[in-house]
Structure formats: C-alpha cells, structure tokens
C-alpha cells in the first residue's frame, strides 16, 4: 500500500476504497471511540458535581495556579509535537529528534504535576474512597494520566527511532499517527481543565446542607 508521505506536500491517493490511509483512519476511529469514553466519565463527574456530603470539597483543595501551569506545559507539548512532525517530514533529523524529546520531557513534567497533585490531595484527606467528588475526580484525571503515560512511552520509542535514523520523511506517518494520539490527550485536558478545575473550583457542600455536614 502506498503510504502518505506528508500532509504539507501533495499527498498521494491511497490505494484503498476510501482513498484514505488505513492506519491513519484507524487512529481517527480510535480517537472517535475515546471521545465517547471520556464523554461518559465527564458526564458522570458533572452529574455528581456538588453532591458530596463529606469533605474535602473542590473549593478546599483545587489548586488553580498549579493546574494552569501543568495545562500550559501540556499545551506546549502539543506545539513541540507538531514542530517535531514538521522537521521529520522535512528530513531534519536532529531537530525532529530534539522536538520529540521535548514532547517526552514536557509530558513527563505534566505527569510530575499530576503525581504531586494526587499526593497533596492524599495528604489533605481526599482519596477515591473519601467522597463522590474524589471518586469521579480520580477516575477521570487518572484515566487521562494513563493516556499521557502511554503517549510518553510511545514518544520515547519515536525519539529513539528518529535518533537512529529509522524515522524518515517517507515513513513520517508513524510519527503523525502518534502525534494524533498526543494532541487528542491535549484536547481532552482542555475540557477537563475547564469543567473539573475552572468551573468546579468554587464548589462546596450541597446547598442548604452546610450546617449538617461534618468534615
């Protein structure tokens, strides 16, 4: 099968009934299913939002400045990813490798932030078993973190491949497919940051129950 060489240049029509590259289509299909996967967890979080009867509540523990920083790091990793793909397609091996490594490092920093946040929440008394906020929060952000971890490992292999010269303009599709996965992880975080952090940051006990609730 003919492989798509580059988006930025004239792409060949693939020798498939749709004219689309099968591997790339498979990744988009996976991402489509992942949209529904995350959609279900985000909906669950929102349904149970503000219904915890015991603390800690989001208003007591969410650290917006810290999460803003980690959000910025993940956003910049997406930029690094698209630059890496550009340079690999252009045949600039060193620059390509460097930017793929930047993706790995930025992804690892993001995971460092998440690890620190989970640890702090644990110290403050919030675990997945503490209340319904803890359950829905840890499941959603934990699954996202698992996605990021898989992406970091994948990018590590890509960096090694690029360093060894095995990743070239003619098979840059390998990196492009990995990149689609990485960017998807970023767009999921865009939604999580808005919904879980910014919108829920001031959530306390359920209205009218403040006096009945013990911490």
């Amino acid at each position: 099968m003919t492989q798509a060489v580059a988006i930025d240049h004239h792409e060949p029509i693939e020798n498939t009934s749709t004219g689309l590259n099968s591997r790339k289509l498979m990744m988009w299909a996976f991402l489509g299913s992942d949209v529904m996967f995350f959609g279900a967890f985000i909906a669950t979080y929102l349904v149970y939002r503000g219904k915890s009867l015991v603390g800690p509540y989001p208003s007591e523990i969410l650290d917006i400045p810290l999460t803003t920083l980690s959000t910025f790091v993940l956003l910049m990793s997406s930029l690094a990813m698209v630059l890496a793909l550009h340079y690999v397609k252009d045949g600039e091996r060193n620059k390509g490798t460097l930017w793929i490594l930047a993706v790995v490092v930025l992804g690892a920093i993001f995971m460092g932030f998440q690890f620190y946040e989970f640890r702090e929440f644990g110290h403050l008394g919030l675990t997945p078993r503490t209340n319904i906020f803890g359950t829905t929060f840890f499941i959603l952000t934990g699954i996202h973190g698992a996605h990021v971890t898989i992406g970091i490992i994948w990018m590590g292999f890509m960096a090694y491949s690029s360093h060894k010269g095995a990743l070239r303009p003619d098979n840059a599709l390998d990196l492009e497919i990995a990149g689609l996965y990485w960017h998807f992880v970023d767009i999921v975080w865009i939604v999580i940051f808005t919904v879980i952090y910014l919108i829920s940051a001031n959530d306390g006990p359920p209205p009218g129950m403040e006096s009945m609730i013990t911490h």
């Binding site: 489509g32 985000i42 349904v47």
Partner: peptide, 13 residues
C-alpha cells in the same frame, strides 16, 4: 464521533 460523543454525554446527564 464528536456528535455521538456529545449525545452520549447529554443522554447520561
């Protein structure tokens, strides 16, 4: 996929 995802989201809510 997004349309179906959003529909699942709204239906669950």
């Amino acid at each position: 996929s997004m349309v179906v995802g959003v529909l699942i989201f709204v239906a669950l809510m």
